[in-house]
Simulated assay, not measured.
Amino acid sequence: MIKVLFAAGDENWQTYEAPLTKAFEDRSLSIDLSTAHPAEDSDYIIYAPVSDLKDFSPFTKCKAVLSLWAGVEKIVGNLSLTQPLCRMVDPGLTQGMVEWVTGHCMRYHLGIDEALASQNGQWTPKTPPLAQDRKITILGLGELGTACATTLAGLGFAMTGWSRRKKSIAGITCQFGEEGLTAALESAEIVVLLLPNTPSTENTLNAETLAHLPKGARIINPGRGTLIDDAALIAALDHDQIAHATLDVFRIEPLPANDPYWSHPKVTVTPHIAAETRPSSASEVIAENIARCESGQSLLHQVDKAAGY
């Protein structure tokens, strides 16, 4: 019997117990799933940062810590975590992100905000360019960034992607490194941020990099709040360097009621809804990883602790 400790909060336990049990049964895994296994007996840990579990050193038998969250910045630096750590790459989360990013890119591309604001009885046609003439850059070509970039390229958009390391993706102009970031920004009418939260990605968009964007560019951030220097973005909005920003993630969440983003006329705030882990599909990912590990295969989505993701 494989003992799996669910250390992801009481509320999540109520949501995940049934789909996890089904996913294990579908793979004929003999699992004892509980929120109360002793540390020395636990073969795997299903984890979320809302858990009280902070010290992983007693879990000497544990083969892997399986995160329910896509982001691992709240656990990856834990020095007691010597076990392999796997982040959540959930097909449902990925599809949700693709739909959200595509929808807001189309909103900007088609000028929907402007059309709604100008319904004043005057007939003022404004035809948007075709997708092939609209340049979009995605910063971050991991699982989510690649999925979004590929979908947008499939709609005909002129897509550029940027990553820290060199990548090659069909239909995407791929840039990398510091010089590549400048090139990726200089051509971007719409920028989508899907980078992980690491020390090297903090304030990727700052006063200097925002200045590289074409005047009137638009920003979409469903990635991490730390990717943007907030004061620099507000200044760029106020000086018309940036025409508009749609922000789904913030350094402090929920976003405080007095935060200037709420009242800024060129900012759309959404409450961290771009992508959410779906219990049914996430449970399939967890069960697949345990099945792989038990059969001697490599874990999926294992985190590079040195890189932070």
Rank of each mutant, 00 (worst) to 15 (best):
residue 205 L to T: 01
residue 23 A to D: 00
residue 201 T to M: 03
residue 280 S to G: 03
residue 42 S to A: 14
residue 22 K to H: 08
residue 44 Y to D: 02
residue 230 D to P: 03
residue 56 F to H: 07
residue 31 I to E: 02
residue 133 D to M: 10
residue 295 S to Q: 08
residue 121 G to T: 09
residue 297 Q to P: 04
residue 218 R to W: 03
residue 244 H to E: 12
residue 194 L to E: 09
residue 253 E to M: 08
residue 25 E to H: 07
residue 9 G to A: 13
residue 97 M to D: 02
residue 83 Q to G: 13
residue 180 G to D: 13
residue 207 A to K: 12
residue 150 T to V: 04
residue 19 P to G: 05
residue 257 A to H: 09
residue 303 V to T: 11
residue 286 I to M: 06
residue 197 N to A: 15
residue 45 I to S: 05
residue 164 R to E: 11
residue 32 D to H: 14
residue 152 L to Y: 04
residue 222 P to F: 06
residue 308 G to V: 15
residue 23 A to G: 05
residue 174 C to S: 11
residue 232 A to S: 09
residue 67 S to E: 07
residue 40 E to Q: 15
residue 14 Q to C: 15
residue 189 E to P: 04
residue 9 G to Y: 14
residue 169 I to G: 12
residue 198 T to S: 11
residue 214 P to D: 09
residue 58 P to Q: 14
residue 294 E to W: 09
residue 126 K to V: 12
residue 47 Y to W: 14
residue 184 A to E: 04
residue 55 D to I: 04
residue 248 D to W: 07
residue 94 T to S: 00
residue 68 L to P: 10
residue 98 V to M: 03
residue 28 S to C: 12
residue 247 L to Q: 00
residue 288 E to K: 15
residue 71 G to A: 12
residue 86 C to Q: 05
residue 85 L to K: 11
residue 225 G to V: 02
residue 192 V to E: 06
residue 246 T to N: 05
residue 174 C to V: 13
residue 64 A to C: 13
residue 309 Y to C: 08
residue 213 L to N: 06
residue 250 F to N: 04
residue 86 C to K: 05
residue 207 A to E: 13
residue 48 A to V: 10
residue 46 I to C: 06
residue 170 A to D: 15
residue 72 V to F: 11
residue 131 A to Y: 02
residue 231 A to P: 01
residue 58 P to A: 14
residue 79 L to V: 13
residue 199 P to V: 15
residue 247 L to A: 08
residue 24 F to H: 03
residue 212 H to I: 11
residue 263 S to G: 09
residue 168 S to L: 10
residue 83 Q to S: 10
residue 93 L to W: 06
residue 167 K to S: 14
residue 67 S to V: 01
residue 293 C to P: 14
residue 270 T to Q: 06
residue 305 K to G: 04
residue 95 Q to P: 03
residue 295 S to C: 04
residue 110 L to V: 08
residue 51 S to E: 01
residue 159 M to H: 08
residue 195 L to T: 02
residue 80 S to P: 14
residue 80 S to T: 15
residue 151 T to P: 00
residue 64 A to S: 12
residue 216 G to D: 10
residue 290 I to S: 01
residue 206 N to S: 07
residue 136 I to M: 02
residue 45 I to V: 06
residue 283 S to D: 01
residue 137 T to A: 09
residue 114 E to R: 11
residue 187 S to V: 15
residue 130 L to Y: 07
residue 31 I to N: 05
residue 57 S to F: 14
residue 128 P to M: 01
residue 78 N to E: 13
residue 220 I to W: 11
residue 103 G to P: 02
residue 244 H to C: 07
residue 102 T to A: 08
residue 152 L to S: 02
residue 33 L to A: 05
residue 4 V to K: 01
residue 89 V to A: 05
residue 11 E to Y: 02
residue 238 D to M: 03
residue 60 T to R: 09
residue 139 L to P: 07
residue 164 R to C: 05
residue 288 E to H: 15
residue 95 Q to M: 12
residue 13 W to M: 11
